[in-house]
Amino acid sequence: MHVVKEARATVIHPTAIVAPGAQLGDGVTIGPWCSVGPDVVIEDGVELISHVVVDGHTRLGAASRYFPFCTVGMAPQDLKYKGEPTRCEVGARTVVREHVTIHRGTAMGAGITRVGTDVLIMANAHVAHDCVVGNRAIIVNNVVMGGHVCIGDDARIMGSAAIHQFVRIGHAALVGGVTGVEADIIPYGSVLGNRARLVGLHWIWLRRNGVKSDEIHRMRKAFLSLYPKNGGDQPFAVRLDAVRQAFAQDQRVQEILAFIDAPSSRGLVRSAREQGRGQDMEDA
């Protein structure tokens, strides 16, 4: 039996401004004093609570929510930008809190800024032009990122972290609060410090997401082989080849190695162990 879904009413507050040409799905709520530009596409069930500005060639995914004074799809803070029709996309069920700014892409970059599905971006955070934020990522209050940053699925970026342009942050990585990130962070990596240093793996995420103890043990062994205390006696390239061979069948270790092998504009965050300070953090 085919079930026909009943369309839900779209509600637009009298004080909101929705430009001709904007496309609104079913069940959209646009609250007081919101502004929606002519090239915006808003999918089913989206809620703009109040004082939200959405502009440019922007698509808001189904059932996503936007809190007061956030802006999505505004022109980038890049002096090379000359008004090109670049884009911005936010995925389904993502929550964007107060005073967040998400800018559209640039012609010099990928031409699009993407935020994934089920993401939480907390108050006062900034997602710059051409950034990619993966699915289920959590971006905490006051996080700022330069252009072209790529954040993997399930990453956790704690409060007031600052991320340099072109940095890559791997799957399920953890960035500690008030951490300055100038280089790439391996998948599952945990970094801390005024200038980020790798202090271990994101053990809490691994345990909470059902990774078995024997696999966590292998990941710990691989990490210690890559980043031995005091840097070890061998060059990093030699340690990398040894781990590649010893853990050829371990999918998560291979994910880390593939990230290390990929092209990078910024290099890798160095380990605190290499400088003889910091320890592997069991509860990072």
Results as ranks from 00 to 15, higher is better:
residue 181 V to D: 00
residue 6 E to F: 12
residue 232 G to D: 10
residue 112 I to F: 05
residue 246 A to K: 14
residue 189 G to Y: 00
residue 47 E to L: 03
residue 133 V to Q: 01
residue 218 R to P: 02
residue 156 R to E: 10
residue 265 S to A: 15
residue 96 V to G: 01
residue 257 L to M: 07
residue 151 I to E: 00
residue 185 I to V: 14
residue 212 K to S: 07
residue 4 V to A: 15
residue 96 V to A: 09
residue 163 I to F: 13
residue 16 A to C: 12
residue 201 L to M: 15
residue 193 G to W: 06
residue 82 K to F: 10
residue 61 G to E: 11
residue 201 L to D: 03
residue 151 I to L: 05
residue 16 A to F: 10
residue 13 H to K: 07
residue 199 V to H: 09
residue 181 V to A: 02
residue 121 I to T: 06
residue 178 V to F: 04
residue 60 L to K: 01
residue 21 G to V: 05
residue 110 A to I: 06
residue 142 N to W: 00
residue 55 D to E: 15
residue 107 A to N: 14
residue 176 G to I: 04
residue 56 G to W: 02
residue 276 G to A: 07
residue 16 A to S: 07
residue 123 A to T: 12
residue 67 F to H: 12
residue 119 V to H: 04
residue 218 R to D: 15
residue 66 Y to S: 05
residue 213 S to W: 06
residue 41 V to H: 11
residue 76 P to D: 08
residue 111 G to Y: 11
residue 73 G to N: 03
residue 132 V to T: 14
residue 147 G to Q: 02
residue 135 N to C: 03
residue 83 G to Q: 14
residue 66 Y to Q: 01
residue 48 L to K: 10
residue 152 G to C: 11
residue 71 T to K: 13
residue 158 M to D: 13
residue 111 G to E: 08
residue 60 L to W: 08
residue 271 S to E: 13
residue 121 I to A: 03
